[in-house]
Amino acid sequence: MDIAAIKKDVHGIILQSNIIPQDAILKDDTLLNEYGVDSVGIVELIISIEEKYDFEFSSNELNLKDFETVNSISLLVHKLVFHNKENI
């Protein structure tokens, strides 16, 4: 799965989870906290991503800095979920 497809998924997950206003314009580099997303919102997002891709972040992968934008989240998911699989 390529980064563009993951970004599309992440956009969808964020919009569905109601952690940002429905009318918000979310760009790939928009900081989620600009829309008032707090750490509870980030954890909701983490759980939704885990469910979507059927995996679980380990504690050393849970750095909140990686969950600031669609870009950073997508890169992390790509690295953890798909990069490893593609290398098998």
């Binding site: 750490s39 509870v40 980030i42 954890v43 909701e44 983490i46 759980i47 504690s59 849970l62 909140l64």
Partner: peptide, 14 residues
């Protein structure tokens, strides 16, 4: 401490 908090939120939610 920050990580502990995030994991606890996750566990409470799940």
């Amino acid at each position: 401490y920050g990580l502990l908090r995030i994991l606890l939120i996750k566990q409470i939610m799940k």
